[in-house]
Design a protein around this nucleic acid. Sequence first.
DNA 1: TCAAAAGTGTTAAGTGTACACCCATGA
DNA 2: TCATGGGTGTACACTTAACACTTTTGA
Lengths: 233, 233
Amino acid sequence: MKEQFYKYQYPHPAVTVDCIIFGFDGQNLKVMLIQRKSEPFAKMWALPGAFVDENESLESCAERVLQKEGNISGVYLEQLFTFGSPSRDPRERVISVAYMGLVKTADFELIAGNDELQIEWKDILEVGNLAFDHNLILTTAIDRIRGKIRYQPIGFELMNAKFTIPQLQQLYEAILGKSLDRRNFRKKLLSMQILKQLPEKQQNVAHKAASYYEFDRERYDVLMKEGIYLELV
Amino acid sequence: MKEQFYKYQYPHPAVTVDCIIFGFDGQNLKVMLIQRKSEPFAKMWALPGAFVDENESLESCAERVLQKEGNISGVYLEQLFTFGSPSRDPRERVISVAYMGLVKTADFELIAGNDELQIEWKDILEVGNLAFDHNLILTTAIDRIRGKIRYQPIGFELMNAKFTIPQLQQLYEAILGKSLDRRNFRKKLLSMQILKQLPEKQQNVAHKAASYYEFDRERYDVLMKEGIYLELV
DNA sequence: TCAAAAGTGTTAAGTGTACACCCATGA
DNA sequence: TCATGGGTGTACACTTAACACTTTTGA
């Protein structure tokens, strides 16, 4: 490697942003995976990603990946971790900044890009061997979302604007990988007063219809400003 | 910029690791700062850092910085966040991976490197304008340590191997920026059984001598393995 | 009328918080 | 003997966790 075109006479690695996009379909927690077309790791499944452009922030790069794969914007994104082992890419040194995103699968229309054979939502319990160190990135992301969902209302990013309490509970159970007590879940959630009950109820269900709620972001922001710490589970 | 020497035909930014090294001197929380010798931002204070070497992991790079500045190794280090705004360095694009370290100031002998006019422990309440986006990096680190100290025993990294409970409380108060109830602090800490009382006591103090304790890492690891969640404050 | 999921309240145990006095030590 | 900080216990409020029956709806 030579760097005579750069101001700083130091190595210049390639830098990518890889995205762990979690999706919820109402039942299970999924993650967006693509099947690679080209080497290295051709035909293997991997996390979607992109090389960082010259005048693009890391976050914009993550947004660009989402746009490319599903024509989606305005979703929840947070930086997860930066993976920089010198040998994580067999071709040359590539440092990867991982971003985690949360979406409703129904909002996405997955479209395989030019470099991809396929794109799919995979259940997080059924992910096999991934390219590069992407299994490590994924487990790091799962740990993060499990920790974070307990005290930040990121779960609502994965729900439709209106949802029932049992639906929300199903999401929490899918993420945490264990079941929760119905009565206590509802009680705690309602006691925070961050849900607004809507007049509507579920339609055409063969049992008692659950009523719809929506997340009260204003109320949540007020509570946060007051420094109130909400443990959601 | 040209990249004809690289396998991947994409931009290759420079990548640095910047270190936020917090130190505790028994009274106040300090951060290690260097005064830059060269442009850009010559003479300004900044966080110590280094460009990532070709065959060096990000963590090794952070360790190298610590070695260089204070001849220290084996301390607590964790990755904080990656800062990648395209304009954060006026010369060319530089992506910075920030690492946070925790040390006892007494263990360090600060030695200004070749690129540095001075190196100093600055009280976190007295830090002025820093070079680049280093004020942002520092406030991010302070937020992180405040959040983390509540449920992970990282505070012990800042203490000597043996310490008194009031000393530990002083550290917590310095980090959290508020005072805590002596009785409750002690009660909670002891109830976790992660401290071992030593037979020794303080010497030559003009009041009742406090007894020394040490952190029981084995016991802590057992508790963690059992999935017990300890809120330390 | 059946199956399936929604909705509801109480109790016991544990935890957090507030608070005031005595103790040991060197000056 | 005084000043200084170390060390201790209790009571109350609140939160968590466990648990079973009734209601609504479409098939």
